[in-house]
């Protein structure tokens, strides 16, 4: 009993649970969802195999937890996760901005903004927070617009 209650405090008990849940939901989807039959085993065969493997793996993770093997997430979990969400937001924002302001301006704004965010006193370090991003933008522009010619709007200004 003791071993079980201690298992409940371990992170990997929950990662195992999520793994198993994904597998179970997937199998239910195959059983009751809208899957068209197809030639040679059908389109659901490989996903089904993967879901079963997920459930087995989840049980394996639980076994490891009971034997005292559990990984702990890093302590700065929240910062890493919010950085991740931030990067996704900035990436999407940059593409949205390219549609509005064009390639050069958006890339320059993104680079300057990001460098300033990561530097303690951005204005004091202006060569690295303003000048370097502008030079990088020029190089990126030469590479992607002049050489590769990607189908994105070029720029508002030039």
């Amino acid at each position: 009993m003791n071993i079980l209650t201690r298992a409940l405090t371990r992170t990997d008990f929950y990662t195992g649970l999520v793994t198993i849940l994904v597998g179970v939901v997937g199998l239910l989807d195959i059983a009751y969802g809208n899957w068209r039959p197809g030639p040679g085993l059908g389109p659901h065969a490989f996903p089904q195999l993967a879901y079963i493997a997920l459930i087995c793996a989840g049980l394996g993770i639980w076994v490891d937890v009971l034997r005292g093997k559990s990984d702990d997430p890093p302590s700065n979990l929240r910062i890493i996760l919010s950085t991740g969400i931030g990067l996704v937001a900035v990436g999407m924002g940059m593409f949205w901005l390219i549609g509005k302001l064009g390639f050069v301006v958006s890339v320059a704004i993104t680079l300057i903004g990001a460098s300033c965010l990561l530097t303690r006193e951005p204005l004091k370090h202006w060569p690295s927070t303003i000048l370097v991003p502008i030079i990088s933008t020029a190089v990126i522009w030469a590479l992607f617009v002049q050489l590769i010619n990607i189908p994105l709007p070029r720029a508002l200004l030039f």
């Binding site: 999407m92 593409f95 949205w96 390219i98 549609g99 509005k100 064009g102 189908p151 994105l152 709007p153 070029r154 508002l156």
Partner: peptide, 18 residues
């Protein structure tokens, strides 16, 4: 919708300054 908007504005912006 975002995708569409991006694609459309992409072209619009590039062509508006011919």
């Amino acid at each position: 919708a975002t995708l569409k908007a991006t694609a459309a504005t992409t072209l619009a912006a590039s062509l508006a300054f011919a």
